[in-house]
Design a binder for these strands. Structure first.
Lengths: 217, 217
DNA sequence: GCTCGCTACCGTACGGTGTATCCACCAATA
DNA sequence: TATTGGTGGATACACCGTACGGTAGCGAGC
């Protein structure tokens, strides 16, 4: 079974899922494939291109959600698929928005969202569309990044109260007890029991409403 | 003049501004300071902590905008200050949302935005506040990241049409000419002459409107 | 049938990274 | 003066991405 770009990308994704993007190296990928490190360069220009490959594989999964009847359902489906993909492949959130996504499947996803948004009320010309796409993408990128980061710190510190107090506690509780950050303290103490997906969906709805309900200029 | 955390962070920021986060290494920082690499470890636990230090220095600048009369002006000022900071220190956008920002100045910025938003109409309980902060931060993070990325690719390919066609052109124009991405093609060809700050401000307004105009549940 | 060139593969090597460890010096104290 | 403690530096290790040179197999031309 010969090597191929697809095979390399697949095992790279597996390794990145397991050990993060920092723990990913061409040498480990090659070893996993039972091959010398330099062998990979016959299929890939450099590590950056390999990353682009991995990213586009994930976009392929996102693109699978396809078209829905209404523009709003389409946008919601794509946004949720992006979130799901990032939760499955946390490294994906590390590169979200950090490099141009120009792979064929990434373009397909972009096309689907742009086409859907162009059918939304309140989007009248290209300028409107450009802004709407920008706002939506920005929100999705930021949300997903934030959620993945929270999940990582929760995992590294331990979810339960005790471990949290033990690791971040000494510093954070001391900080919050200074009284200089009362609102943040309230958020940290009283909050945190919100369902992440619901929050995502709620804010997504808010933004879509904001886009569609803009008054005619 | 002895070494100090502040001094180290300052030259690290200078180097990162000039050569990006990838081009930043402890050895280069040390050399810039006329010191052996290991000296830095007397002031900093590891590179990660140094990064946190750098990030909080930037947050200090953002926090300087301080309080404004109205909640909306405050939020707008902080968002724009964040954007300005990220445009001055592009590496800042690379870590935005990618790690918990717990430095004192970062907490101050978080406190200021949360306090402002808690005074916004439509924000009634902690859940509302949590969602509002999340939506706003997500948008700012995503927007800034996107803008910095665009600026980088524009710089690396060259802004003018010719250089663009020469570098990304061969691939991208071929892709767009397949006809599979008509909406994206329209965006790429007809768009792109929007003012970035105006777009940021416009979308920011849209989101704040969306937050404040939510119907009572 | 023999040789030649080409391709697919591989190992080694270089310059760089973050960081642990040990070592030399030098100032202050007993 | 002898000792000690701390400060700054050099060296070393494991790992990284990747440039380069070499080798084995194989099909094509004489």
């Amino acid at each position: 079974m010969p090597l191929s770009r697809e095979k390399i990308a697949a095992t790279a994704i597996r390794l990145a899922d397991a050990h993060g993007l920092d723990g990913l190296s061409l040498r480990k990928i090659a070893k996993e494939l039972g091959v010398g490190p330099m062998r990979l360069y016959d299929y890939v220009i450099n590590k950056s291109e390999l990353l682009d490959l991995m990213v586009d594989v994930v976009y392929a999964r996102i693109a699978e959600v396809g078209q829905r009847p209404g523009w709003r359902d389409t946008v919601l489906a794509i946004a949720h698929a992006t979130r799901d993909a990032a939760l499955d492949h946390e490294w994906f959130s590390d590169v979200l928005g950090g490099r141009p996504h120009l792979g064929p499947h990434a373009l397909a996803v972009g096309e689907a969202t742009a086409a859907a948004l162009s059918a939304a009320p309140g989007v009248r010309d290209i300028g409107d569309l450009q802004r709407a796409v920008g706002a939506l993408n920005a929100f999705v990128i930021g949300s997903v990044r934030r959620e993945v980061t929270e999940r990582r710190t929760a995992r590294s510190t331990g979810t339960d109260e005790a471990a949290f107090q033990a690791s971040l506690g000494p510093y954070l509780t001391r900080m919050l007890r200074t009284g200089r950050y009362p609102t943040v303290a309230r958020l940290v103490i009283d909050g945190a029991h919100l369902n992440a997906e619901e929050t995502f969906n709620h804010n997504l709805t808010t933004i879509l409403d904001g886009i569609t309900s803009r008054p005619p200029t």
